[in-house]
């Protein structure tokens, strides 16, 4: 901590302000159009399900919404080799 930090305005309000700005920017745009990330998630899942039988438990989806960039992380555990069942 530098000497300068001692004089900086502290408090939790700036954190509140920043969190709100990020959140509301996202919520305002998603009010007008369907959630792109959710749409991607559903369609990617549909494509996988068309070709491979997978359990719901083998799929982990997480979304991290940031100020400018959002990440959609899909972690799918595919069964190996022979046991890999093709869906028709």
């Amino acid at each position: 901590m530098s000497l300068f930090d001692l004089f900086k305005k502290r408090g939790s309000a700036p954190v509140a302000r920043e969190r709100l700005q990020v959140l509301l920017a996202y919520e305002r745009t998603s009010r007008q159009k369907p959630d792109l990330v959710l749409m991607l998630q559903e369609e990617i899942m549909a494509v996988i399900a068309r070709h491979v039988h997978i359990d719901q438990d083998d799929v982990r989806v997480s979304i991290d919404r940031g100020d400018t960039v959002s990440t959609l992380e899909i972690d799918i555990q595919l069964p190996n080799g022979d046991s890999m069942a093709l869906a028709s």
Binding site: K9, S12, A13, P14, A16, R17
Partner: peptide, 16 residues
């Protein structure tokens, strides 16, 4: 509390 930075200020809220 707002002046101590513990509470959102008026300008913060109007801005948001």
């Amino acid at each position: 509390r707002a002046s101590r930075g513990e509470m959102l200020g008026i300008d913060d809220m109007l801005d948001i």
